[in-house]
Design a protein around this nucleic acid. Structure first.
Length: 421
RNA sequence: GCGACCGUAGCUCAGUUGGUUAGAGCGCCGGUUUGUGGUACCGGAGGUCGCGGGUUCAAGACCCGUCGGUCGCCCCA
């Protein structure tokens, strides 16, 4: 196969076709519908940005920036990066276009994002996300609205059954700092019993030890101090308002005090909708409040909250969407009738009737080929014993307006020459 | 970056402890049959068995490397 030099698909990219493409489209269509219900405005931003947009917002030194971004120099020598997420680009657009005047601004978008990772189940280098953000809203009501929207989306996709909303708060910066210090002290005391990975995390990202999968870490992580012991009263009140809002909206949630974010700009609410049906990749939709982000891009302090979900992961969870069946199969069972059949199918399509022409290959096999496409109705042009004829057959009459079909087709049948052309 | 498993027609897969010219089903193309009929039959195209080395009288089968895929670890904005 690779004997020829046909170029290969880049590792971690996908060609979506057939069922895969239908699943993808179903997720996007559902998101678009729900997004409108909640009044989130559509927005389109570039799929690549100056590298600084992501490097500064995420943190120059993190693994994420140094190893997992698709960065390269363009012909002018500028460093550009394929977007690894939507949030930073939206924040850049918000600042650069003066969208502060519309604050609080509810935005929704979707499209490809890129991360330089080793592909595995539910993880690709180019994958696709749906994304919703509320920029310029400090109130817990914004968090609640986003979560209720996410919940409705998952319901309408029919995936909510195996999925639970895990919720946590990271507190305000004072809370977060105090908790972090307590955690580091706790883990330092048990340094010798931690896994090698977690010893490394202790220096780089101690919060991540909390959700370590290594059994050696679990007892230590489970015994770690919780954030609630360090919660400021303001932060506690904020979280209480969020949970109260979810309860009022009837959205089920569970507290996961070990749920953290890797990046420093997150504050207060952090959440993930999680399933156990996706192997190692359990998170279906995740997000949180990022009140610190916009300042890192040189803007004024701007509270904001948002979430994103991987389309591929949702597409794997939903029921298989039924393929749109063929409306009318127009079959030329004789080579001399191919142009007439083309006239039929063209007239039907111009009138808005989904139809397909079967006029190639062995004429005697065209009918069988047409039947395999599962048409609602067939119109077959044939020539037998010197006479042209049109035969019709309805297999799923309920799927078509046969009255309309007749009005389009009857004149063409009438005009068909009686005998061979 | 690390690890495990997997690579045979367009697709799904056979291929016996290494042993002549590598097979099937589906799909595709041509033909016959049927003639309101998703039928049946005949024929055809399509593979240097991912690629490169090695072992052997002999490799699709064994060994090494490489590329690709899948799953997991790390990471997860």
């Amino acid at each position: 196969m690779s004997r020829t030099d046909t170029p290969q698909r880049i590792r971690g990219t996908q060609d979506l076709f057939g069922e895969d493409a239908r699943r993808h489209a179903k997720v996007v269509e559902t998101f678009e519908r729900v997004r409108r219900l909640y009044g989130f405005q559509p927005v389109e931003i570039p799929i690549f940005e100056a590298t600084a947009v992501f490097a500064r917002s995420i943190g120059e030194t993190t693994d994420v920036v140094s190893k997992e971004m698709y960065s390269f120099e363009d012909k002018g020598g500028d460093s550009v990066t394929l977007r690894p997420e939507f949030t930073a680009g939206l924040a850049r657009a918000y600042l650069g276009n003066g969208w502060q005047q519309y604050a609080p601004l509810k935005l929704a978008t979707h499209g490809p994002v890129f991360r330089y990772e080793r592909p595995q189940k539910g993880r690709y280098r180019q994958f696709h996300q749906i994304d919703a953000e509320v920029i310029g809203a400090a109130e817990p009501a914004a968090d609640v609205e986003l979560l209720v929207m996410a919940d409705q989306l998952l319901r309408e996709l029919g995936v909510s059954d195996g999925v639970t909303l895990q919720l946590n708060t990271l507190g305000d910066s004072a809370t977060r700092d105090a908790w972090r210090q307590a955690l580091v002290a706790h883990f330092e005391a048990h340094r010798g019993d931690l896994s090698e990975d977690s010893v490394a995390r202790l220096d780089k990202n101690p919060l991540r030890i909390l959700d370590s999968k290594d059994p050696r870490d679990r007892p230590i992580a489970d015994a770690a101090p919780g954030i609630d012991e360090h919660m400021s009263s303001e932060a506690g009140a904020f979280f209480a308002a969020v949970t109260k809002g979810l309860d009022a909206a009837g959205v089920a949630w569970t507290r996961n005090a070990r749920l953290v974010r890797g990046l420093d700009y997150y504050r207060h609410t952090a959440f993930e909708f999680v399933t156990d049906r996706l192997g190692a990749q359990g998170t279906v939709l995740g997000g949180g409040r990022y009140d610190g982000l916009i300042e890192t891009l040189g803007g004024p302090h701007t509270p904001a909250v948002g979430w994103a979900a991987g389309i591929e992961r949702l597409a794997m969870l939903i029921e298989e969407p039924i393929a749109q069946g063929l409306g009318i199969a127009v079959i030329a069972e004789d080579r001399q009738l191919e142009t007439s059949a083309l006239a039929f199918v063209t007239a039907l399509r111009r009138a808005g009737v989904n139809s397909e022409l079967f006029a190639s290959g062995n004429p005697k096999k065209r009918y069988d080929k047409a039947m395999r496409s599962n048409p609602a109705h067939t119109i077959s042009l044939s020539h037998r014993e010197g006479v042209n004829g049109v035969a019709q057959r309805s297999l799923r009459p309920q799927d078509l307006d046969l009255e309309k079909v007749r009005s389009i087709v009857d004149p063409l049948i009438f005009a068909l020459p009686q005998s061979a052309a």
